Computed example of a mutant assay.
Amino acid sequence: MPYAALVLLEPLHKESKDIGDFFITSSIFINTGWAYTKVGEFDKADQFIQEGLEMAQNHNMPSNVVAGYQKLSDLERERGNFKEAYAYFKKASEFEKEISSATNLRYMNDVIVRYEAEKKNNQISVLAKENEIVRLRLKKNQTTLLVSALIVGLVASILYILYRQYQNKNEKRVLSLEQNMLRSQMNPHFLFNSLNSIKLYIINNEQKNAVHYLNKFSKLVRKILEASSQREITLAEELETIELYMNIENIRFSNEIDFKITVDENLCPSNIKIPSLALQPFLENSLWHGLSPKEGKKMIHLNVKRKSQNHVSIEIEDNGVGRGAAEANKENRVLKRKSVGIRITKERLANFSKDYQNKFDVDIVDLFNTDGSPKGTKVILDIPTI
């Protein structure tokens, strides 16, 4: 496994640096050091872990700093330097405590600031009422004008504050959705399945196939990282990413899945933009729940059609076991996997539609044979275009 990890991680060193995401780069270097530790190349392991740790420290990435110290502790333990291993372990523990203390301190400061703000708002309200009484006593003939001006100003201020709070909350929510989306695309199950499949090619001495699929896997990881930093991409780029993803996943199914993409002739995918990485969770759901337990011929067809001037319809049809059987299989599994990717994608599509004042629809249709037996599932996405 460490050798396979090195095969995956080493090509990503330059790619991650070029992207400029120091969090990803730091993680890649630290995990490369871990892999070298497991294969016994301790000097290289120390070099990579130290470089990743320094990057995390310089760019204020607490979780990666903790991971770096933990990996250094593992390295020194493998070397037999138990004193140094304990020292690094102690540093990791202390840093975790500092992170927790800082989080608690920020929370308390936030509570205090909110309390003070509420207190000041109450004082302002009291002063405004007193001022109104004074004005009523001094200038009765100007009461209506002054009160109106005060109310207008107060309402405008409150509306502005509420708008800013809503805007900040929405921005944080969108950012959280994008981060969750990236984690769902790069889930460990998919990564380990892909690496294990490539490892089998290496074990079977199928070097050409191993290099071919390793290149595809690296390209897919790069595309996912690039797309995750963009709010929307062209449909052509999305379809290219999906095709790479299906090529990788098809290794697990011994290349027995008939995957096909069909695009209407009157559509130009390069001129249509959709939310980035919106289709992969639905394909993953078809693979995991529909086709994985199915025996015999397996297929997934993706059809892109123009529904109206401002909407495009994307249909994902499979010939899996159907949602009823999939749900029963899911209950019988020891490892129950939640389809969080679909929920996240629906929320991202809702935000995307709201910004462009268009609606979106996601419809899941159960397919049946003439005798009433299930023959698969069809997902229909009605997505607004830009």
Rank of each mutant, 00 (worst) to 15 (best):
N180Y: 05
K223D: 10
M181T: 07
A227R: 02
S176A: 11
F190P: 13
I198L: 07
S229M: 12
N215Q: 11
E171Q: 06
S197W: 08
K223T: 12
L175N: 02
R173S: 08
S228I: 02
N180V: 02
S218I: 07
R173D: 01
E232K: 14
L177P: 01
K169T: 13
Q207C: 08
L235N: 11
S184V: 01
L214H: 09
E238L: 04
F192G: 02
E237V: 07
K223R: 09
S176H: 07
K219N: 13
N215Y: 05
V221P: 00
K169G: 13
L177M: 06
Q230R: 14
L235H: 08
S176C: 01
N193Y: 08
H212Q: 10
Q230T: 13
L195A: 06
N193I: 02
Y213A: 00
L195R: 08
I198H: 08
Q185M: 12
E237G: 07
N170I: 00
A210R: 04
Q185T: 01
N196Q: 12
L214K: 09
Q179G: 04
Q230G: 06
E171S: 11
K169N: 14
Q230N: 15
F217K: 05
K172I: 00
V174N: 11
F192N: 00
I203F: 05
S229P: 00
A236N: 12
A227L: 05
S197V: 09
V221W: 06
L220F: 05
N180D: 11
K172D: 07
A236Y: 04
K172T: 02
H212E: 12
S218F: 03
N187G: 02
H189P: 04
F192C: 00
L177G: 03
Q167A: 03
A236D: 14
L214V: 01
Q230H: 10
S184K: 04
Y201H: 15
T234M: 10
V221K: 10
S218Q: 15
K223L: 11
E232Y: 10
N205Q: 15
I198M: 09
Q165Y: 14
Q167E: 03
R164Y: 06
E237I: 08
S194M: 09
V174T: 11
N180L: 08
R222V: 04
N204R: 12
E171P: 02
E238N: 09
N196M: 04
N209Q: 14
N187V: 00
Q230Y: 11
V221C: 08
E237N: 14
E232L: 09
L195I: 15
L177Y: 03
L239P: 12
S176K: 11
E226C: 07
N196C: 01
R231A: 12
N193L: 05
K199A: 14
Y213I: 00
Y166N: 13
Q230F: 10
R222G: 05
S176V: 05
N204S: 15
H189T: 12
Q185L: 03
Y201P: 13
S184H: 07
A227K: 06
L239G: 09
S176Y: 08
Q207I: 15
N193E: 15
M181K: 12
E171F: 04
R164L: 03
A227F: 15
R222D: 09
L200D: 11
S194H: 11
L214M: 14
S184T: 11
H189N: 11
N205I: 13
S194G: 10
I233K: 08
K216H: 03
E206C: 10
